[in-house]
Amino acid sequence: MATRITISKIEDVEFGANLPAFEPDTSLAIVKTFATLIGWDGARFRDHEAARKEGLAGAMVPGVLSQGYLVAMIHQWAPVAEIKTIDTVFRAPVIADEPHFITGVVTDINEDEGLVEIDLTVANEKGETRVFGTASVSLPA
């Protein structure tokens, strides 16, 4: 079984490095449970047919869940990383029950301040970007 190497200090981070691939669980069951948890009762988050009646391709993943996937990916890569800022743009709907892939690239390292900047993308199987954003995280020296 492969061992995933995690980052524990800023010296371990390389400029331009790709974070390990992360495939979020976008199943409708997860999406419905999440929508209920945060009180978002819209049918578009619960039912593919109802969402299609609203003109969507299927039930959609709430944007804040996509944002949560991005942060989870960062913590899988660097469990001790503290998120300082995360900014996301919801470019197109993330459709439940469809595979999506999250990528992250280190775009800046500030060792003096202990900060790393990461560009993040959620894409579907066709490679179409659905959500993108940037996070600034702090790591110990």
Binding site: F22, P24, D25, I30, T33, F34, L37, I38, L65, G68, Y69, V71, A72, M73, H75, Q76, P79
Partner: peptide, 11 residues
């Protein structure tokens, strides 16, 4: 806790 679990958090 549930929010974190559903997002896939592991920390």
């Amino acid at each position: 806790i549930e929010y974190a679990r559903l997002c896939g958090e592991t920390a």
